[in-house]
Design a protein around this nucleic acid. Structure first.
Length: 111
DNA sequence: GGAATGACGATAA
DNA sequence: ATTATCGCCATTC
């Protein structure tokens, strides 16, 4: 079996799964909340966001951005700093938003 | 049980 | 390009 069975999991398991995926995002690449939800086949973008808000402290949370390339609300300064440090493709006049076209990553693509 | 909430997303203006 | 609204969906009040 390769694909994870998509049967309902407990909240903690779900959180585990989400964090697990986030940890696999390579430096300089990002994933959107929606993409993570799609990959898991469970919940939605908001559920992923909720998990990150609660348990995201231990993973590279800055590599998770919203679909518009916006950085994490409330932690923009920190996230921006880290992205500059790892050379994530940025956009905008101040290079303060993610260039999704270049930085978007999905599991299996093997950096 | 129903309303409010939220680290979202797509669309309208 | 930016902001405002509405739709989603599980948790929390």
């Amino acid at each position: 079996m390769m694909a994870a069975e998509r049967r309902p999991m407990d909240r903690d398991e779900y959180a585990e799964a989400v964090l697990n995926v986030v940890e696999r995002i390579p430096p300089g690449r990002v994933m959107t909340y929606g993409a993570i939800a799609e990959y898991l086949g469970l919940g939605g973008p908001r559920q992923v966001g909720t998990v990150m808000a609660r348990y995201g402290g231990g993973v590279p949370w800055h590599r998770v951005v919203n679909a518009t390339g916006r950085l994490v609300p409330g932690h923009e300064a920190e996230a921006l700093k880290r992205h500059r440090a790892e050379g994530t493709p940025m956009r905008g006049p101040d290079r303060d938003r993610i260039d999704l076209r270049a930085a978007f990553w999905f599991p299996d693509e093997r950096s």
